[in-house]
Structures are given as structure tokens and as C-alpha cells.
């Protein structure tokens, strides 16, 4: 009984994770510029993989009686570092002057940079 229920929960977690990963890949393929693509890739793929890893951790814990701390460490590490990586890439893209999407309305960072340059000169 408990095995059936836990298999149901684990299967749901893994399927949800794979689905989120596919959604993020479609977002990376379809969105118009670098910044929106970073938004898709860093949030959705991270949530998907965290869900898969949680499912795998529960699988080995409940069904195989093998508590593995390294999977938990992996979950914590990916949760901490993947948004940071997205932020760094997005920042590097802005500083190497990759264009925004043509329909975007406002660029506050550009105005701030201009004001700063005026103060310095």
C-alpha cells in the first residue's frame, strides 16, 4: 500500500520536473531576446531539475531504504547557484551591449548609467 502511494508521488514529481524542463526549453527557443531567454532558462529549468532530484531522493529513501545526503546537497547547490549563473550571463550580455527586444519600453539601467557618467565628467 505504502509502496503504491509513494510510487505515485515519486512518478508525479519526476514527470512534473521533466515537463517543466521541456517548457523551459521551448521558452529558450521561442522568446525574442537574451534577457527573456535567461528568464526562461534559469527559473523553469531549475525548478524542473529540483523536482526530479526530489523524486529521486524519495525513491532511494522510501523504496530502497538508502538515505543519500549527496542528492540533498545537490538540490541545495543547484538551488543556490543556477539563478546566480543566469544573473551573471545576463549582466555580461548587458555590458557587451546585446540589444534588447525592439518592443521593450524602458531601459532604466541605461538612464542610470547616463546619469552616473554625467556626474563623473
Amino acid at each position: 500500500m505504502i509502496e503504491t502511494i509513494s510510487k505515485f508521488v515519486i512518478g508525479y514529481l519526476i514527470l512534473q520536473g521533466a515537463f517543466f524542463s521541456l517548457i523551459s526549453a521551448i521558452g529558450v527557443l521561442r522568446l525574442p531576446d537574451v534577457y527573456t531567454r535567461t528568464h526562461a532558462a534559469s527559473k523553469s529549468a531549475t525548478l524542473g531539475v529540483l523536482s526530479i532530484l526530489l523524486g529521486v531522493f524519495l525513491y532511494f529513501w522510501v523504496l530502497e531504504d538508502h538515505m543519500n545526503g549527496r542528492v540533498l546537497l545537490g538540490i541545495l547547490f543547484i538551488f543556490l547557484t543556477s539563478p546566480v549563473a543566469g544573473h551573471l550571463i545576463s549582466r555580461a550580455a548587458y555590458h557587451t551591449k546585446v540589444k534588447l527586444w525592439e518592443n521593450s519600453k524602458i531601459d532604466e539601467l541605461k538612464e542610470k548609467k547616463k546619469a552616473k557618467d554625467k556626474v563623473h565628467s
Binding site: S24, A25, V28, V34, R37, T38, A41, S42, A45, S82, A85, G86, I89, S90, A92, A93, T96, V98
Partner: peptide, 10 residues
């Protein structure tokens, strides 16, 4: 180039 870096990371 940042596009490619993002997709490699993903």
C-alpha cells in the same frame, strides 16, 4: 554569445 552560454548552462 550569451545566448549560447545560457543554452549550454541549461
Amino acid at each position: 554569445v550569451p545566448d549560447r552560454a545560457i543554452s549550454l548552462d541549461a
